[in-house]
Design a protein around this nucleic acid. Structure first.
Lengths: 119, 119
DNA sequence: TAAGTTTATCGTAAAATACCGATATAAGGA
DNA sequence: TCCTTATATCGGTATTTTACGATAAACTTA
C-alpha cells in the first residue's frame, strides 16, 4: 500500500499549486505582478474582502514560497518570490514529460489485467 | 472594487491547479503517468482509500482536463489528458514572466503611497 | 506621550472538501 | 437469466478551508 509516495519536492510543489489554486490567491498574485510591488493595504483595496482575510491569504502565499514580504515601517511591502516561482515553473515543466500515447493500448491493458504488474 | 478580475482562462487554470494541488490527486496523476495506462481499480490498489473516494478524485481530475477516461467493457481505462496538460504547462510558463526586480524599489513604493495609482 | 496607521493574529461561524459505506448501473461470463 | 466484476453515484459525517470582526503589535506622527 501507499506505493509511489510523494517526494518532499513533490509535496512542496503540490502545496504551491494548492496555494495558487484558490481563485482569490491566484488573483492576488496577478495584482502584485501587475503592480510590480505593493503593500498589503493596496491588495486589500483591490478586493472585496476584509483586511484580515487578505492577510491570511498573503501568509499562505508567502509560506508556499510564492511571495516575499518585507516589513517597511508600519507597512509590509510585497513582491513575487522570484526564486520560488522559477522553481515551480521548472518543476511543472519537467513534470509528466510523456503524455498519452497516440496508439490505443487501452484494450490491451484492460484485457490483460491479470498480468498487470502494477499491484 | 474587484479590479483585475480573472479571465475565463485564468479561472480554468486556477481550477486545474486546485485539482492538482491535492496530494492524493497529485499522486494519482503520478501513478497513471508511471504506468502509462491503467484502470480505476489499479489506482485504488495503490491507495489506502475507498473505491468511491478514488472515483471522486478521478472525476475531479477528469473534469479539470487532466485525465481522460474511456469505458472499456465494465472497466474504465485512464490516461493523461495530453492536450490539457500541455495547455496547463504553457499557461504556467508564460504566467508571471517578470519576477522580482533585483533593485530595491520597496522603500520608494511605500513612501509614495499617496501617489500610488492602484486604488 | 497620545493618536493614527498598517498589519498580523485570534476565535469562531459558515461553506467547501474529503472520506466512507451502501447502492445503482452496466458489461461479461456461466 | 443469474452471478460476478468494475465503476459511478448518493447520503451522511468529519475535517479543512474561508471568511469575518475584534484585538494586539509595531511603527509614525502630532
Amino acid at each position: 500500500m501507499e506505493k509511489y509516495p510523494l517526494s518532499s519536492e513533490d509535496q512542496r510543489l503540490a502545496a504551491m499549486l494548492k496555494a495558487l489554486g484558490n481563485p482569490v490567491r491566484f488573483r492576488i498574485m496577478r495584482i502584485i505582478a501587475n503592480n510590480k510591488m505593493c503593500i498589503t493595504g493596496d491588495v486589500v483595496e483591490f478586493t472585496d474582502l476584509a483586511q484580515s482575510t487578505v492577510s491570511q491569504h498573503l501568509k499562505i502565499l508567502r509560506e508556499a514560497g510564492l511571495l516575499k514580504a518585507e516589513v517597511e515601517g508600519s507597512a509590509t511591502s510585497l513582491c513575487l518570490n522570484d526564486e520560488g516561482i522559477r522553481w515551480m515553473k521548472a518543476k511543472i515543466d519537467d513534470w509528466l514529460p510523456e503524455c498519452c500515447p497516440t496508439i490505443d493500448l487501452r484494450r490491451f491493458v484492460v484485457n490483460h489485467k491479470q498480468g498487470f504488474s502494477g499491484k
